[in-house]
Write a protein that binds this DNA or RNA. Sequence first.
DNA 1: TGATTTTGCTAAAACGTTTTATATAATTGT
DNA 2: ACAATTATATAAAACGTTTTAGCAAAATCA
Lengths: 340, 340
Amino acid sequence: MGKKISITSIAKHLGISTTTVSFVLNGKAQEKRISDKLVKKVMDYVEEIDYKPNSLARSLRTGKSNIIALIVEDISFPFFSAIAKEIEEKAYKNGYRIIYSSTENDAAKTRELIEIYQDKHVDGYIIVPPEGVEEKINALRLSGKPVVVLDRYLDNVETDHVLVNNYDSVYSATQYLIDQGYKNIAFITLSSLQSQMLDRLSGYEQAIQDNNLRPIIKEITPVDSLEREKHLLSFLERKRNNIEAIIFSTNYICVSGLKAMKQLGLNIPEDIAVVSFDDYELFEMYTPAITSIAQPIESISENAINLLLSRLNKRTADVDKSAQKIVLPTTFIPRDSSGH
Amino acid sequence: MGKKISITSIAKHLGISTTTVSFVLNGKAQEKRISDKLVKKVMDYVEEIDYKPNSLARSLRTGKSNIIALIVEDISFPFFSAIAKEIEEKAYKNGYRIIYSSTENDAAKTRELIEIYQDKHVDGYIIVPPEGVEEKINALRLSGKPVVVLDRYLDNVETDHVLVNNYDSVYSATQYLIDQGYKNIAFITLSSLQSQMLDRLSGYEQAIQDNNLRPIIKEITPVDSLEREKHLLSFLERKRNNIEAIIFSTNYICVSGLKAMKQLGLNIPEDIAVVSFDDYELFEMYTPAITSIAQPIESISENAINLLLSRLNKRTADVDKSAQKIVLPTTFIPRDSSGH
DNA sequence: TGATTTTGCTAAAACGTTTTATATAATTGT
DNA sequence: ACAATTATATAAAACGTTTTAGCAAAATCA
């Protein structure tokens, strides 16, 4: 095998200094007044031996890794993997690579992840945070690394956020059901303190209250899907006659709900109408097709990565520029499951 | 802010050499005969200031980045995102991080990706390769980096493979339909030269031939889902009376097929029975539930990452150890769509 | 012409580790 | 008491870049 190639070996071979090679490679030839002749000589040789700089060395020297950490709840959830796809694509085009991991909504694990990425000196973070990582994220910000929080809102954390209008979305979905004539409308959600869940719940509650109806709220402790289904089964068994419609706060709770309803022989929408937060290919194909509140995945991804990239391109001095909170609208997709 | 902490600043503060600190931190104290007293002193201080080594510097020096590249067709496909989840989890526990990207089955893009990861000095690769990257992968191998190929088989590439038994799986699924009494059985697939697609097709053809039946093969050029649906619609419209059952070679083609069949008012399985390769939550919930050939996602992921980790832990000298080809069985899940 | 500016290039430090070779002090052996 | 060994610690090079500060020659200026 030929000698290891490096900027040094190139310099030696051409009888010039590494400085010059580096300047040429980084497009600073003009600025640094390297003659066109020499530039050509370097470029030709570099081309010839197909030299590629060692990015580790570069990162060590510059302090920039060109890596962005993407920390989501679970990369195998369609919502998150779709986001991962979009974000990676855009980041790639801008010279950044993405390193990912799933938190499983575990705060300790998330804090550990963040620490590891700090050691790796990633340049920025896109995080879907569980409860309990507020201080850690603040510390990250203080260290000068840009952080974009996705899907949820963290109080007392001065950083960029990208989320959807959970409150309004659920409020109007609830109102929609009410307008269709439903009165006993249940809201089934996770027992979670995460902002997006709380906002969805509030939207429901307010709409119910504004219409002088009685709220029916069921909170499921987040466990595995079989457990979830069992809980829903027993809940529906007890309440089936007192409920005319259900709004599920996430698509996977809805799927569990659909399974439970099928087992109980409940017809949708005749016995119980259904609306789910977060669309899913399954909902479109299901019989009957399930009405849903669709999140703008592309727009979420695009805003998140753009926000991060813009911070990354700015001088550190501007970092304290006030945090942005981007709230995107959802799309209500009425389907057969919510008609009368 | 305190001074930047490094192994050097620690050494300076304790009045000892960086060598000593490094030895202690790397657990080589015993071997290098550092006194217990000094070890404790170092450890205590390291603990106190919560020092974490700079992994860039370490990587530069050692030539190991502790990063694995995961290159799949499309990270947003449930099959791949599920694999990504498993692989990341296992890699994480072994001190490796995962960097990912989607190839979109584009050979040029894939080659570019590989080059970039080479620059980043990733330690190993898990790749779902499009056609046309064989030489590049061989070059990778030659450079001493372990590569595990997933989902597909590359001829003339001496590297580890993990895939499922595509041929047998489809052969028996076809036989199953034949045993159910179906005679005019179509196979709808992508027009692709990828090994997994060819194997699935061969399995179908052989079963048809072994039973003296007439093959009906439809190849779809891989385009977007709307196009796919249109193609299937016109195909089914023409052939609806000559087909009793269909085997789809991937889950997303099947979804398009289901949409087309619904539009044409074709009843499953009365008018046409359906089997799909690759299970999908949608299939379980669909009416009727769709029979499928499920791939063992956990096992695929586990085998892939284990294989890679074992190569990574070996000395480079053993690299030429003969490549392994791991072929895993699928699970046939009979559901309502294939009964009579 | 002599001073100044511009042009073209480079030496050397720095980023933060790991590791080889070696120095010194303490201990053991005879 | 002197040699050999062992215990403890370190200096310095190396990994491959980027970048600051500066030098010498050529060009411009007055």
